[in-house]
Design a protein around this nucleic acid. Sequence first.
DNA 1: TTACAGAGACCGACTAGTCTGTCCTTATAA
DNA 2: TTATAAGGACAGACTAGTCGGTCTCTGTAA
Lengths: 212, 212
Amino acid sequence: MKKKPLKARIVETSLVMFEKHGYHGVTVDQIVEECGTSKGGFYHNFKSKDELLYNIHDVFISYVLDRAKEAYDNYSTPTSRLCAIILSFTKVFDLYKPHITVFYQESTYLKGDFQEKINAKRDEYRKIILRVIREGQENGDFRPEVSAEITTMAIIGMVNWTYKWFKKDGELSIEKIGEIFNDLLVHALVTEKGMENQDIHTYLLKSQLISE
Amino acid sequence: MKKKPLKARIVETSLVMFEKHGYHGVTVDQIVEECGTSKGGFYHNFKSKDELLYNIHDVFISYVLDRAKEAYDNYSTPTSRLCAIILSFTKVFDLYKPHITVFYQESTYLKGDFQEKINAKRDEYRKIILRVIREGQENGDFRPEVSAEITTMAIIGMVNWTYKWFKKDGELSIEKIGEIFNDLLVHALVTEKGMENQDIHTYLLKSQLISE
DNA sequence: TTACAGAGACCGACTAGTCTGTCCTTATAA
DNA sequence: TTATAAGGACAGACTAGTCGGTCTCTGTAA
């Protein structure tokens, strides 16, 4: 029964603390106190508090970026690709909720080089979605009259905002939430022609009467 | 030519600075330097830096809350109410973009009583949208199979996220962006029966071919 | 004279980061 | 197998600087 390496423990502990109190609401002393180590232990593993923040950002954005690329490669139509990307992202909330919160809450405080590296990956992510939507508009599956750029940001916003309200022990599982997002998206974007595709019904929720 | 009162100048100046560098990235000294006053001037108008942060939060949330209530009262169908609320909110970006950024970025750092007051208003806002969606589902205008709660948060997310990317001198005006949001929403939510309503076409973008 | 708005030197608490030293594991030579 | 050397992981006292907030003083308008 081996103990986890200190570096991982520092990341995990600080993550929970940052999520609750914010990056500036937690001191290095509090972090080392909480995971039972020392200043020495901390600065042996990280060059600075900033580097810890960068580390947290990078783990998360690299992970979702990989999932998005996978989703793009594993499917071949705009609709299935978009839905797969959305679903892969929402699923990450179960695993990386604290990372995501820190990512969107504290990225202002990333300095110079750290900020540039993260922004580059963030932009890459955005461009994948933008590309899927453009391809959908070009082949007639998606409605052409809505701006692809704005739609991209609307989708990203809808999904990302989940970090503000999602509770792991809430009523709906994260998969279910992802399905609702996809259902809304498909209705908002897909044309009648695009709807004729058979497998699109995979992404739609079954209509049911409201109980009275 | 009367000068603006110092208190307002402090708010305006700090807002711009907070938006760029974050609440913790700006010191009181920097604020008073930037608006040509002194520590004395600052602490004569605010009990603490926290109170300034609260002030900024309150101005913004109170404003949008009033606009939402107005929009609800001025319209009578779920669709028109929802669209009016969304439009009133997006329009606020022209006026209050820095407030909004600070609101969503720094609310973690509001202490005790301040936090509770802001959260109460924020919750009130959420409930207005939730109510409109429920009413739409009950009268058959909105699709009943999507969860009203999740849809509410999806909408709020889509709109709120605008603060992360909207540029005042960008390609599209904020009104145009609001119209796209409404178009997406109407397609995502409204039933065929609900679509029969005449004035719904006000909220839809005109279909046009993509130039090749 | 009074009341209030603002100036700015000053303070004390706090915090990121440093530095020296210790322990423990592992490699190596006898 | 054992003695010894070396290097990495960590401990924790310490430092230098920063920042929110206070206090006293000044100018001004009624």
